[in-house]
Write a protein that binds this DNA or RNA. Structure first.
Lengths: 339, 339
DNA sequence: ATTAGCAGTCAGTGGATGCGAGTGCCAACG
DNA sequence: CGTTGGCACTCGCATCCACTGACTGCTAAT
C-alpha cells in the first residue's frame, strides 16, 4: 500500500514534471524538497507508486513521469486549488469590465481564460431554451428574400434568411409581422413553436404557403440551439506545448476546429465538488484526444446553462488552471445574470 | 538576361518544389519535363536565374529553390489560373447552398476556402457603412439594464448592453423606442448618427441623461465597424505545413488570432488584374510574417465591401489557391447580393 | 523502516567515415 | 554562340561507435 509519504512523493513528481518537462528521479526529489529521508527511501516509495501504476519510467534508467492514473489521483486528492493572485483577479476585472454585447463578452472571456491558463480555451454559447420571445422583425433584402430576426428576452438574437417562392409586397409583410408578434410575443420558446404551428392566415388562402414558410422558419429559429456553438482562443498555445503530444497536434487542432467532438465531450462532463470537472488523457480517448486533458465548469446566463473550459496536454498545471476556469466561470455567471 | 526557356525552367522549379518540398536539380528537371535539352544546358539557365536572385541553393551542392522574388515572377507572369475542377465547383454549391444567416454564410465560406486550399482561410465581415437603419428595439434585461438591438436593411444586427444609472419603467422605454424609431428609421448610417446627436427629449428634462446615454450607445452601434472582425478556419493546416517555416509557427498563429495585424494587412492589399492580390514572403515582413504568403480578393455584400483570403507558407500552390480565392469571393458576392 | 553502496541499463552526445546528389567549369561540337 | 558530355569538387546526411552520465534495483548493514 502507498504510504502518506508516498502520496507526497507523487505530488512532487507531478509538480516537478509539469514544471520541467523532465522525468524526475529520486535524487532530484531529495535535493529539491525537504523530505528528511534519503534517496534510497524515496526509491522504495517510487517502486510502490509504480506498482500501483501511478508513475512510469519512459526508459529503464530514467526518472519517472506520472501516468494518467497518477494525474487523476493528484487532481482528486492532492491538488490545492490555489486562489488566483491579485494580479489575475485584476486581469479578470479589467478584461471583462466593459463589453458591448454577448458575443463580445464571450470572446473576451475565452481570450482571458486562454491567457490565464496558457492553454486553448473554449466557451460554449448559452442556450436560449428558457427565454421568451420578445420581438419578431422582418427585413426585406430583395424582392423575394427577407431576413427574419427573432429577439428573445434574454438578449439573444437569431437571424434567418428566407427565400420566398414569389414576391411579397411590403404592406402584407408588415401585416404578417404585426399578427405574428401578437401571436407569440411573451411566450416561452416551446409555447411559441406550438402557437406558430397552429397559426392560419384568415381571408387570403393563396398566401398560406408563404405564411407556412415564414412560420416554419420562425419555428426553426426558436428551436435553434445556440449551444451548438463554441468560441475558441489560444490555439497558439497548443503549438507551444507540441512536444507534450507524442504524434502531431494536427488531429487535436482538427478536433477543436470541428467543434462537434468537443461539444459532445462538454456535454458528458460532470461537475465535481469544486465546480470544476476534469477529464484526463485516455479518459478522452473516445473523443480522439488520448493525450489531452480537459477542464470545464458550468456557467449560467439568465438561467440558461452552458459550459466553458480549457484543453491542453495531459502535462499541465492543474492547480492553476482549475482555479482559473472556476474563477472565470463564476465571474461570467455574475456578469450575465446568475438568476 | 533570362531567356524564355529560363522562365520555363523557373516555372517547373516552382511547381516541382511546391509539389515535393525538395530542392530541385538540373537532372530531375530534364527527367520529369520534356525540355529537349541536356541537364548541362538547364544548369546554365539556372545559373542565370540565380544571378537574377530568382532561385537560390540552400547548400552549395544541392538543388535550387525559388526565392521570394522567384515566386513573385511566377505569380505575376507564369501562373495559369487554372479553373476549378467540376468537383470543386460542386463543393462550393453544396457547401454554401443553404445557410441561415450572415454569420453562418461566412463561417461556411471560410471553412470551404480552407478545404479548397488546404491553408488557413480568413473572411472579413462586410462593413455596414452603406446600410440604412431598419429598426431599433430595446429589451429590458434587468431593472437597470437594457439590450439595444439595431437592425439594418442589409440584414446586419448590432447589439449592445446599456447599463442605466437608475431604473426606467417599461412604459417610458416603449415611448422612447417609438420616438427614436421614427427619428432614424430609413436614414443612412451617417445621417442617423447626426439625427441622434441632435435629439432632445421634450417635456421631461430629468430623463435627458438617460436619453443621452441611450442615443450615444445607438450612435456607437451605428458607427460600429464590423469590418474589424475576422472569421478564421483551417488553423490545423498551418501545423501540417509547419516544416515550411524555419522557426516555430507559434508567432504566425498568434498573429492570426490577434486579428489586428491581419486586418491591417488586408487593408493594404490591392486588387490586381485577376481580382486576386498576392503578398509573398518578406513582403509581409512588416507584419511579422516574413515566411508567409497571403492571397486575398474583395467581395461585396449588398454594396458593402470586404476581403477574404488565405494565408500559408511561401511554398504553396499559388495557381490553385488563387483560383479558389477568386471563385469563393465571386460566389459569396453573388450570394450576398452583388449590387 | 531506513540507508549506503554498487553493479547494470540505456538515452544522448560527439567524432569519424562513407555515400550520393548536384554543381561549376571546361573543352569539344554543330 | 548555344549546347553537350565529362569530371573534379563540395557538402549534407546517414551510419557507426565509443563514451558519458543519470538513474534504478538490489543487497547487506544499521
Amino acid at each position: 500500500m502507498v504510504s502518506d509519504r508516498g502520496l507526497d512523493v507523487l505530488r512532487v513528481i507531478v509538480q516537478d514534471y509539469v514544471a520541467s518537462r523532465e522525468p524526475v528521479g529520486s535524487k532530484s526529489i531529495v535535493d529539491r524538497h525537504a523530505f528528511g529521508v534519503s534517496a534510497a527511501t524515496i526509491r522504495n516509495d517510487m517502486a510502490l507508486l509504480e506498482e500501483e501504476d501511478l508513475i512510469a519510467a519512459p526508459h529503464t534508467s530514467s526518472g519517472r513521469i506520472p501516468t494518467d492514473k497518477g494525474y487523476r489521483v493528484f487532481v482528486d486528492h492532492l491538488a490545492d486549488l490555489r486562489p488566483l493572485t491579485p494580479a489575475q483577479r485584476q486581469a479578470i476585472e479589467t478584461f471583462l469590465g466593459h463589453a458591448a454585447d454577448l458575443d463580445e463578452v464571450l470572446v473576451r472571456s475565452v481570450r482571458l481564460l486562454s491567457q490565464l491558463t496558457h492553454q486553448v480555451a473554449l466557451v460554449q454559447y448559452p442556450s436560449v431554451s428558457r427565454a421568451k420571445v420578445r420581438h419578431i422583425e422582418f427585413v426585406p433584402l430583395t424582392e423575394t428574400r427577407i431576413l427574419s430576426v427573432l429577439i428573445t428576452d434574454s438578449g439573444g438574437v437569431e437571424q434567418r434568411v428566407i427565400d420566398l417562392p414569389w414576391a411579397l409586397d411590403e404592406q402584407t409583410l408588415v401585416e404578417v409581422r404585426a399578427r405574428l408578434n401578437v401571436a407569440v410575443v411573451g411566450l416561452g420558446m416551446a409555447e411559441a413553436r406550438a402557437a406558430l404551428a397552429a397559426s392560419v392566415w384568415p381571408g387570403a388562402p393563396m398566401l398560406q404557403p408563404l405564411i407556412d414558410l415564414i412560420t416554419s422558419t420562425l419555428a426553426d429559429q426558436i428551436g435553434a440551439n445556440r449551444q451548438d456553438k463554441l468560441v475558441m482562443a489560444g490555439a497558439a498555445n497548443l503549438v507551444r506545448t507540441e512536444e507534450d503530444f507524442s504524434g502531431s497536434i494536427y488531429p487535436v487542432l482538427e478536433a477543436i476546429e470541428e467543434q462537434v467532438v468537443l461539444l459532445r465531450l462538454f456535454g458528458e462532463m460532470e461537475t465535481d465538488q469544486h465546480g470544476v470537472s476534469v477529464s484526463i488523457g485516455r479518459e478522452n480517448a473516445a473523443f480522439g484526444l488520448p493525450e489531452a486533458s480537459v477542464l470545464t465548469s458550468g456557467y449560467s446566463a439568465n438561467g440558461n446553462l452552458a459550459r466553458l473550459g480549457v484543453l491542453g496536454p495531459t502535462r499541465m498545471d492543474y492547480s492553476n488552471n482549475m482555479a482559473a476556469v472556476r474563477a472565470v466561470a463564476r465571474y461570467l455567471s455574475r456578469l450575465l445574470g446568475e438568476t
